[in-house]
Nucleic acid binder design. Structure first.
Lengths: 222, 222
DNA sequence: CTGACTTTACATGAATTTTACAAAAACAAG
DNA sequence: CTTGTTTTTGTAAAATTCATGTAAAGTCAG
């Protein structure tokens, strides 16, 4: 599924049509509000994002996407009328996967999208993370440990997903809060520890794969 | 390039030096005026911003940075005296990327900066230090000596990281305290010696790579 | 009501700091 | 070159502080 965020109705319809013709599912949104609303229902494989938008602009939307663990991994292609270098730099800095300068042809757009999808989703649409005997399917929202299905709560699932997306990397509690909870917690909270605890408990048949790095945070064994 | 905005001269120099030792270009500025002046010439990859500043304060500077398209995407780490939670809230609301409570060690500062850079500018956050057969990964918080994993405590790890970031360089005990423990460590103790001792013990299979320079301090063999 | 999430409180064990003394090096004087 | 003295460093062990795991109670949304 590809989401297209573009305020101009004609352009938006054209894009959606072009993607559908190329065999992709696609939906169009006229602004950030509608887009984030739809995001709650379904996570797309790719987002086409116009920089110039009424209300919240594309840069801001991209930032919000990148700041939440759930949407962090979604590839984004930025599109803008302004050929200025600055927008390009900012977009790519924030983690846009590619950049299209208007006016662009539909063929070029589809081929760029295909390239990004090929890079980020080898196996076409299979978004399965594997670390050791752990397998997490982001499409199905399921987790298997040595083939056995685990029943995780949302926070546990997202924690695990974050860990599995960067095995070996240490995450501080602040980073975990920022990525999984999405907010900037003030003061101290043991919430993270508790969830790590329950996650470990459910994983305990599988093994001790979430390590604590004393004084720093937690890490998943590579 | 990293810009450090900090009014205290000693602290500022220390920060700039620490970044340079870690392989980053860095420049220091004592107030908002000098900082914005330099911004016209060059856009940094990261800004370290003290909240308490003479003239325009850090919050206001951050606001100005975020309000211009050119500087909007520059990541910012705020630094402030401990306990002023209110500032933290405001800073994070305005889009600071991270937050450091004074007093903080230079090692921690560099590692936070690296984390932010890794997130915003992949490629700028290369994070593996190698000296001889020693290998230290700052992202994973792991150390290998001749391929064998070492289990270090936080202080041992940060000491080693400091040494490895400037092999051959002699550090006085004061410098070690300043860098690893924090800017204003109070009282003189033998703490450093003890930690050097335990670090040496854990490294002893690898070799005597941390030498004492009698009357001065310690140094890592190049 | 139920399940998920958060907060609180406390036990535990690890990390860190302090202390004390031994060992090593530097130094001074004969 | 000795010898004794002083300074500096190494380190074992005790004392202290701190971070974490976790049970249990509280909160909240559906």
């Amino acid at each position: 599924m590809i989401f297209c965020v573009e305020d101009d109705r004609a352009a938006r319809d054209l894009m959606v049509y072009a993607f559908q013709a190329a065999g992709y599912d696609a939906k169009g949104f006229s602004d950030g509000k509608a887009f984030f609303c739809a995001l709650k229902e379904e996570l797309p494989d790719l987002v086409m994002l116009d920089i110039m938008l009424p209300g919240e602009d594309g840069i801001s939307i991209l930032k919000r996407l990148r700041s939440s663990a759930v949407t962090m991994g979604i590839p984004v292609i930025m599109a803008t009328a302004k050929g200025t270098e600055y927008d390009k730099v900012i977009g790519l800095d924030l983690g846009a996967d590619d950049y299209l300068a208007k006016p662009f042809g539909m063929m070029e757009m589809v081929s760029r999208a295909r390239a990004v999808l090929r890079r980020t989703k080898p196996g076409k649409g299979s978004n399965i993370l594997k670390v050791g005997g752990l397998e997490l399917d982001t499409g199905e929202h399921t987790v298997f440990a040595d083939g056995e299905r685990l029943d995780l709560t949302l926070k546990e699932y997202e924690l695990l997903r974050l860990f599995m997306s960067s095995p070996g990397q240490v995450f501080t509690r602040d980073q975990l809060l920022q990525n999984v909870w999405g907010m900037d917690y003030i003061g101290e909270t043991r919430t993270v520890d508790v969830h790590i605890g329950t996650l470990r408990f459910k994983l305990n048949a599988y093994g001790n794969c979430i390590q604590t790095v004393r004084g720093v945070g937690y890490r998943m064994e590579k």
